[in-house]
């Protein structure tokens, strides 16, 4: 089934909005802003990045670059580099292989990335200027690309969970995120609470790359324990609203230390988009 450019853009915006509506401790949501970013920054970023990201005439790398450029022009800071890096291959997959299962189509896209995709993506990353980005020999984003985008992601995947998705065909998202989202959504019927469940599960199982780039592994165990508790609570309650006091408490604690699990929030957006795409393709 072919999803039009406008439909894909709408699904992407909706996925970004669901993530903003989800109370994700330590991250920005309608319940709690922070880290010098506002909900409006993220809404505006989703709005302006949607069209370049879904432009059927752009290559994967061009999608990434022009979506980041549009964001930078609109809000002047890095709100969505991880989101764009994760969502672009999903959208490219649907546009390129509309008749394949999404996971199979995505694997095809990732396997066939080019040096040109890497070049555009390096420019996008330089433009976004994410905090704590290091250098990897052979693939410094400030140099010209000499390897494919997937090969570049391979070099970065031990310290970046977004990069890891490029070399595992989004294993975290398909094997953990989507399953958790579907289960929580079917149980509670609310997309934003399903997104909270995904975020908590991801953080309980994997250290957040954004936190570790800034602080090393100093806080990783504490965050994992905290999110494990949240995940357990969510699995055993019929009304997720009951955990709101706990979410406020965790949010205050994380933000008081400057901890922002931004990579896990990015993976949450990509999970929600994956579900939306699969539902739309099935429907």
């Amino acid at each position: 089934m072919n999803l039009t450019q406008d439909k894909l853009a709408a699904l992407y915006r909706e996925a970004c909005e669901v993530e903003l509506q989800a109370f994700k401790p330590g991250n920005v949501s309608i319940y709690s802003e922070g880290h010098n970013m506002t909900v409006e920054d993220f809404r505006r970023s989703a709005e302006v990045s949607a069209l370049p990201l879904c432009d059927v005439n752009y290559s994967l790398g061009e999608k990434i670059f022009y979506a980041i450029k549009a964001t930078r022009d609109a809000v002047g800071c890095n709100t969505n580099l991880g989101i764009i890096l994760l969502c672009a291959p999903l959208i490219q997959a649907v546009q390129t292989f509309p008749d394949l299962a999404l996971r199979v189509a995505l694997a095809n896209i990732l396997e066939n990335t080019t040096i040109n995709d890497a070049m555009w993506t390096f420019q996008a990353i330089s433009l976004a200027s994410p905090a704590g980005l290091g250098e990897v020999s052979n693939a410094d984003v400030n140099q010209n690309a000499t390897i494919t985008l997937q090969a570049a992601m391979q070099l970065a995947c031990d310290k970046d969970r977004v990069a890891l998705q490029y070399v595992t065909d989004y294993k975290d998202i398909f094997d953990l995120g989507v399953f958790r989202y579907n289960h929580a959504f079917n149980r509670w019927g609310e997309q934003s609470w399903a997104a909270v469940a995904v975020y908590a599960d991801l953080l309980s199982q994997f250290p957040d790359s954004h936190i570790e780039r800034k602080f090393g592994s100093r806080y990783s165990a504490r965050v994992a324990t905290m999110m494990g508790q949240l995940s357990d609570r969510l699995q055993n309650i019929d009304d997720p609203e009951q955990v709101k006091p706990l979410l406020h408490q965790m949010d205050s604690e994380l933000k008081s230390h400057g901890l922002n699990p931004g990579t896990s929030a990015d993976l949450t957006v990509a999970t929600v988009l994956t579900v939306f795409l699969e539902c739309s393709l099935c429907a």
């Binding site: 989507v178 399953f179 579907n182 289960h183 959504f185 149980r187 019927g189 429907a283």
Partner: peptide, 20 residues
């Protein structure tokens, strides 16, 4: 399996054709 089951009901709910 569980994955297929929950995925099925997400689609049903998404298209407004029932809940699990």
């Amino acid at each position: 399996d569980e994955e297929k089951y929950t995925g099925y009901w997400t689609v049903r709910r998404y298209i407004g054709k029932g809940t699990q």
